[in-house]
Structure formats: C-alpha cells, structure tokens
Amino acid sequence: MLRLENVKKHYDGFDLDCSMEVKRGFVTGLIGKNGAGKSTTFKLILGLVGREGGHVEIFQKPVEQMGPKEKERLGVVLSDSGFNGVFTIQDLVPVLKNLYPRFKEEAFLQKCRDFDLPIHKKLKEFSTGMKQKLQVLTAISHEAELLILDEPTAGMDVIAREEILDLLREYVESGERSILISSHISGDLENFCDDIYMIDKGKIILHEDTDILLDNYALLKVTEEQYQKLDKTYILRRKKEAFGYSCLTNQKQFYQENAPQIALEKGSIDEVILMMIKGEEK
C-alpha cells in the first residue's frame, strides 16, 4: 500500500532519513516524541514537501505521479491543518460529494450526528477534538483504501478517543484497507496497531509487531552486581538507575528462564520508547 525507502529531508538542525512500509490490511503506527519527525514523514508521504533523496510509493506508484484519481483512494487527517473555519458541515457535503465519487453522504451525516457534531455550526466554533473527529469522519467517508492519520485523536477526551479508534477498527475489519497512524499517546496505538515504527531525531529506531513488542519486550531491573553477571546477548538498551540498571530486552522469556531471580517488568510502548531514546547501547 505504502512504501518509503531511504527518504531524506533536511531542515536547519534536523535531518530525516526514513524507511517504512504499510502492508495491505495492516494498521501501522508511527510513534515518537514531539519534533521526532512524524509530521514531516506524513508530509513527505503526501507530497506536501519535497525530499532530497529516496522514494515514496503509494499504491505501487511514485508519489510524484499521484493524481486526483489516486488521492480519491486516500483518507487523510493532518495534525495542523483542516477545512476553513467559515464552513459548516452542511457546506462541506456538496464539496466532498463532488471531490469523491464514492462519498457516502447519508452515512457521513449520520456519523456526524452520532459523534455530536453540529451540522449547521461553523467549524471555527468547534473544539479541537470536534475538528479532529470531523477530519476522521471525512477520511472514512469515501471508502478510502489507505488512511493516513497524523495525530487523529489529538484534543479528544478518553471516551471520544476510544470511540474513534473503534470506528477505525471497524473500518479496516475487511482486511483490504490499511491505516498509517501517528500519535503521541502510546496507549492509543498499543491496542490498535499491528506493527509500530518508532521514530526519533528523524530516524526509525525500532520496527516491531505490536504483539511481539508487548509479549517479548521487558525491562530488567538489576543491581550493579547482577548487571555484571548478566548475559547481555539480548539486551537492547540500558539505563543507569539509583538501584543499578534498567535494561530493555526483546527476549523476555530467555531471562525468565535463565535468570529467574531478576525483577522483570512487562514492556509497555512508553517504556520501550523511553529506553530506546534515553537508554544507552550496552
């Protein structure tokens, strides 16, 4: 569905060099702290900024060749952009109907009502969360095959976030559609994505299936003495702590079996990110 190969972008004080892939039927997450390069990656994918190297393919076609026909197959949420605030949802319906031949007017309006979005109110009077909901509902209103969602749950309360994620889960149920989603709320992605890319300072520092990430990754809490004796074959990162070291492993079972005396914490995405970014290589 989507492939980035050694895509490079340079800004003053920031360099992005990114390779990633979103497969058909997959929900792929892109996670990283603010300024890590998530939005730049999205803009490169959508051809909104030029790149200095590498190539981007959507639907097996270089992004430069992507015309309106291909864009009809995309649903996009941008974190810092959207429809002008002077419009109402009612105003947008004929516009969307004419832009997307497969636009489902009734379903779109019904979903807007379900999510308590006022049809006749100007968008500038919407809260941030409401605007994001509208963008997501727009993205799924025309049977897009690939959703590219940059921080789609930003500004939403926990209930709205869960509702939107449920809606997206339902959307990809058929297995024919894919999603690339970014969020700085790792909990959103933990229970939603099939695989996750972690980005930091413009580089992909980890790519893993979510199940593996949650099942096989763990934090070992070891004293200085335990650390010296520890088999470090499967230690990815370590971090100095008051008690000794925290060590990130991607082979939880190995340490459970071979060092049962060591305190072991199940890895959450937040912990993995923290260790991958802040931790040092062994």
């Binding site: 959508l46 309106p68 864009k71 429809f83 605030g85 832009l99």
Partner: peptide, 18 residues
C-alpha cells in the same frame, strides 16, 4: 487567503485536487 488560513491549503491538496 481563506484557503491558506491555518495551513488549510495543505489539507486541500491532500483531497483529490492537483
């Protein structure tokens, strides 16, 4: 000018518009 408000032009260009 309306299109450009709040970076809206970027959003317009991800719709099926060249």
């Amino acid at each position: 000018a309306y299109d450009e408000q709040n970076n809206g032009l970027a959003f317009l260009l991800v719709l099926p518009v060249s």
